[in-house]
Amino acid sequence: MADNNEPVIVGFLCNWCAYAGADLAGVSRMQYPTNMRAIRVMCSGMVHPNLVVEALERGADGVLVLG
């Protein structure tokens, strides 16, 4: 994502639901934009607010905490 104006989204995905859902989207061949970079967590509750703030500070356009 070096160039262009594509928004960069960081996603924190709970292993048990959102990450599994993202896998299932793959099995179902659903198509969606490539902008999100997923970080797998064992519970969305483990995402420290500092990580969200840091993501935004370092240039992410959006942060998704999915769980």
Binding site: M1, R37, E54
Partner: peptide
């Protein structure tokens, strides 16, 4: 936190 953070930094390396 550090392990999640390095992933975050790696994700945003080119931003």
């Amino acid at each position: 936190n550090e392990q999640l953070r390095v992933q975050l930094l790696a994700a945003l390396e080119n931003v």
